[in-house]
Design a protein around this nucleic acid. Sequence first.
DNA 1: TTTTCAAATGAACGATCGTTCAGTTAGATC
DNA 2: GATCTAACTGAACGATCGTTCATTTGAAAA
Lengths: 195, 195
Amino acid sequence: MARKQGSHSDITRPRVRAEALRLIARYGYAAVSMRQIAAEVGVQVGALYNYTADKQTLLFDLMQDHMEDLLAALQSARLEGGARDQLDGFVRFHIRYHLPRPEQVFVSYMELRNLTPENFARIEVLRRKYEDALEVILALGQTQGVFRVADTRVATMALIALLTGLTNWYRSGGRLPLGEIEQIYLDLVRKAVAA
Amino acid sequence: MARKQGSHSDITRPRVRAEALRLIARYGYAAVSMRQIAAEVGVQVGALYNYTADKQTLLFDLMQDHMEDLLAALQSARLEGGARDQLDGFVRFHIRYHLPRPEQVFVSYMELRNLTPENFARIEVLRRKYEDALEVILALGQTQGVFRVADTRVATMALIALLTGLTNWYRSGGRLPLGEIEQIYLDLVRKAVAA
DNA sequence: TTTTCAAATGAACGATCGTTCAGTTAGATC
DNA sequence: GATCTAACTGAACGATCGTTCATTTGAAAA
């Protein structure tokens, strides 16, 4: 009979994920050893292999979970209305989803080269879906005449880079409150694509 | 008497730098061994230590050289005229300097966490100088009334992220020629900060 | 109380790591 | 041709790496 309550794995499994994410975000995948992760969790290194096939899979799972959670949250946001409203919604969603998760964002953008080619391809599919959601909005605004960009794909890449950059320098408790920064980014994006 | 012509070090030294840069850009600092670098150069690993004190210094030197070359090139660009002209000049300079150097850009932005705290602080000073050059332009345009941004510092960080993002996805021989992409980015930046 | 097995230990595997250094080599200098 | 020395080799150092596995542990199930 499988143990259903108080099972150690229910506690240890998420802790492995959490400590791996924290350490990899801080020191990088290649610089973090399985022994370091185990020490932070409070187990011996061998115990980690009850929860992951190998180190590579642990990294991939962290990145895949992040991308799938991101896409699910975007779906739940249910962006509606005209292109302008949808763009506002996307910008707000992006900022509010990413800022509280600096470690996931950092790992998902910095450790791509440490994925095997197969795993890399699978993450790229998910990332592309997210980019496409923005491009669809830009294309809609273009046909509605409320946006004017020379190329929706280039504008998409540019805007996502602009938005994601915020995660790299924003620190809570900084000079400006989050709401104000959100408004500034909203203004920059609106103007950049305005007709 | 020191050998002045045909000295092996005149050949080996730049090759060590070049192969280290190439490998680190591809696999990451922590994932590249001194033996890999030596093998690419075509020497034994011990020979590398004629050219660098240790692996950390090799990384730091690559990043410092990049930042100093960047700042020197920016000085040489001699941006003049009104704020609008200076902003155009900065955007063009940034794109034209960074795009031919994807490896330097990649390493300088991705390997910051692998620097010792002392070396990190020294690189940050250089990076801040570059950011400040753009912020001065934005502040000038703000007082001249040709730009309108809610916060010059936030706008600076946002624009640099937007511009640097180009280096991450641009591949020569892609769908659009470089000149066209440059024009698209120029339009996005101009509109984003427009009064 | 006894049984059961998920969960974790602890030790070991071969491989690789950054770094050091005594010794060899080969080209410029005399 | 002899001398000199910058440049490099080749071997070694202790440490650490990812991964495996027989064994132990302890709490739920019987």
